[in-house]
Lab assay of single mutants.
Amino acid sequence: DLSALRVEEVQNVINAMQKILECPICLELIKEPVSTKCDHIFCKFCMLKLLNQKKGPSQCPLCKNDITKRSLQESTRFSQLVEELLKIICAFQLDTGLEYANSYNFAKKENNSPEHLKDEVSIIQSMGYRNRAKRLLQSEPENPSLQETSLSVQLSNLGTVRTLRTKQRIQPQRTSVYIELGSDSSEDTVNKATYCSVGDQELLQITPQGTRDEISLDSAKKAACEFSETDVTNTEHHQPSNNDLNTTEKRAAERHPEKYQGSSVSNLHVEPCGTNTHASSLQHENSSLLLTKDRMNVEKAEF
């Protein structure tokens, strides 16, 4: 173990290094160091905050020279020094078990990766560091076993998940096959086929009936047209017969005018059967003409 005197000496050296690497504005270890034209180094955030307070150039807090945003430059070497100082402080805390008085939040800088452990060898070769390295080497064999167990647990979990997924996939297939086998029997399929065939026959029977009705309507229309044509021909046949009657009536009127007047009046009210309204109107006109002729003949006879 380190003596108290040596611990104090190391602590004083760390404090001196820390004062050199402090920012003059925030009085902390410089984060993202930036250098000016006057070779003074500050935190990048502190300098941008200072420049944004005034429009135009501002003055350096140490030498009062003008500073602009374009004049600022990043210093990589200074950032490396800060990183190495942080590593020294971490090693000091691990070796002594004491917390550094002016320690900052170094938890963000710590890294437990194997590459980081290899890099620590180049920091300080001390008894405390050696003991700590031995402890780490002793704890390393235990870690692979834990990793193997965790991997086995994960693989077993994956296997159970896969088996569950396969079961879920197989179950719908089985149910679907069961439904297909038990849903419709052979008799049901035959009945469905016969039902479809009967429906098709009914459709075939319905369509000819409609065509037959249309044919019957067409035949009825044709018969009505033929009947009207026969009526017209009958009226045409009746007209010459009426003319013959008129000639006979004229002759009778010349011989017996008194008797014919009474008979002509009675004939006005008689309509021949089986004739249309057109034929009756023609008869009325003929009878009126005959009456006028008879009157003329009677007057001539009187004179």
Results as ranks from 00 to 15, higher is better:
187 E>G: 02
203 L>A: 12
138 Q>F: 03
300 K>R: 00
65 N>S: 09
62 L>A: 04
141 P>T: 10
199 G>W: 00
208 P>Y: 00
111 N>S: 12
137 L>K: 06
79 S>Y: 09
255 R>S: 14
229 E>M: 01
78 F>M: 06
188 D>F: 14
286 N>K: 11
27 L>I: 03
139 S>Q: 07
284 H>L: 01
15 N>C: 09
2 L>I: 07
230 T>V: 04
133 A>L: 09
143 N>F: 02
9 E>Q: 05
164 L>W: 04
144 P>T: 08
16 A>I: 08
17 M>W: 12
218 D>E: 11
147 Q>K: 12
199 G>A: 03
69 K>P: 06
23 C>F: 13
229 E>C: 01
277 T>D: 14
249 E>R: 14
139 S>K: 06
248 T>P: 14
221 K>F: 14
151 L>P: 12
27 L>W: 11
175 T>M: 10
104 Y>A: 01
163 T>A: 09
157 N>V: 05
227 F>K: 13
212 R>L: 02
249 E>F: 03
85 L>V: 13
82 V>D: 01
130 R>Q: 03
124 I>Y: 03
264 S>E: 12
282 L>R: 05
261 Q>V: 05
303 F>C: 14
253 A>K: 01
265 V>N: 09
23 C>S: 15
222 K>V: 03
261 Q>A: 11
116 H>V: 09
41 I>G: 08
146 L>T: 05
246 N>R: 10
137 L>T: 05
160 T>L: 05
61 P>N: 10
197 S>A: 06
58 S>T: 05
295 R>I: 04
17 M>R: 15
90 C>S: 08
298 V>C: 11
19 K>P: 10
208 P>F: 01
205 Q>Y: 13
87 K>F: 02
127 M>S: 08
156 S>Y: 07
130 R>M: 13
276 N>M: 00
87 K>G: 03
160 T>H: 08
26 C>S: 15
29 L>T: 09
43 C>Y: 15
222 K>S: 04
53 Q>I: 10
45 F>G: 07
87 K>P: 00
292 T>A: 04
282 L>S: 11
301 A>P: 13
49 K>T: 04
273 C>D: 08
30 I>L: 05
14 I>T: 13
131 N>I: 11
289 L>N: 03
7 V>L: 08
113 S>C: 07
231 D>F: 11
233 T>P: 08
165 R>N: 07
280 S>G: 14
254 E>I: 00
284 H>Q: 13
114 P>F: 01
156 S>T: 06
118 K>Q: 11
146 L>P: 14
3 S>L: 09
190 V>I: 09
137 L>S: 06
29 L>V: 07
50 L>D: 12
279 A>C: 05
272 P>N: 14
103 S>R: 09
125 Q>E: 03
251 R>V: 08
272 P>S: 08
203 L>C: 15
234 N>P: 15
16 A>V: 02
299 E>L: 00
145 S>N: 11
92 F>K: 14
30 I>M: 08
44 K>M: 01
93 Q>Y: 13
24 P>C: 01
124 I>P: 12
158 L>F: 02
60 C>Y: 15
50 L>F: 10
43 C>F: 15
201 Q>Y: 02
82 V>M: 03
21 L>Y: 02
88 I>F: 11
48 L>Q: 06
170 I>L: 14
211 T>I: 07
139 S>H: 11
199 G>C: 01
250 K>E: 11
3 S>E: 04
16 A>L: 03
223 A>H: 09
46 C>F: 15
212 R>F: 01
26 C>G: 15
67 I>G: 04
93 Q>K: 15
159 G>I: 10
188 D>W: 15
170 I>Y: 00
41 I>M: 15
262 G>Q: 01
272 P>Q: 03
157 N>E: 07
167 K>C: 00
254 E>S: 06
186 S>P: 02
143 N>A: 06
73 Q>K: 11
151 L>A: 11
16 A>H: 01
95 D>A: 15
230 T>P: 04
294 D>I: 00
191 N>C: 04
265 V>C: 09
2 L>T: 01
102 N>R: 15
252 A>V: 06
88 I>Y: 04
242 N>R: 00
63 C>Y: 15
67 I>A: 04
166 T>S: 07
152 S>A: 08
69 K>R: 00
76 T>V: 10
123 I>R: 07
267 N>W: 00
227 F>S: 11
27 L>N: 11
68 T>P: 15
67 I>M: 07
216 S>A: 12
274 G>F: 12
78 F>P: 12
62 L>Y: 05
132 R>A: 04
207 T>I: 01
20 I>W: 10
296 M>K: 09
19 K>W: 09
243 N>S: 05
62 L>V: 09
136 L>Q: 07
24 P>H: 08
203 L>N: 14
228 S>P: 07
226 E>A: 02
51 L>K: 02
218 D>C: 03
148 E>D: 11
252 A>F: 03
8 E>C: 02
86 L>S: 06
16 A>S: 06
254 E>Q: 13
300 K>E: 01
92 F>E: 13
22 E>L: 04
218 D>H: 08
62 L>M: 03
276 N>L: 13
105 N>K: 08
264 S>W: 03
38 C>Q: 15
2 L>G: 06
36 T>K: 13
61 P>A: 12
13 V>I: 03
150 S>D: 02
26 C>M: 15
273 C>W: 00
6 R>K: 09
3 S>P: 14
192 K>I: 00
56 G>S: 10
9 E>D: 04
159 G>P: 12
34 V>T: 05
207 T>E: 15
203 L>S: 09
152 S>D: 05
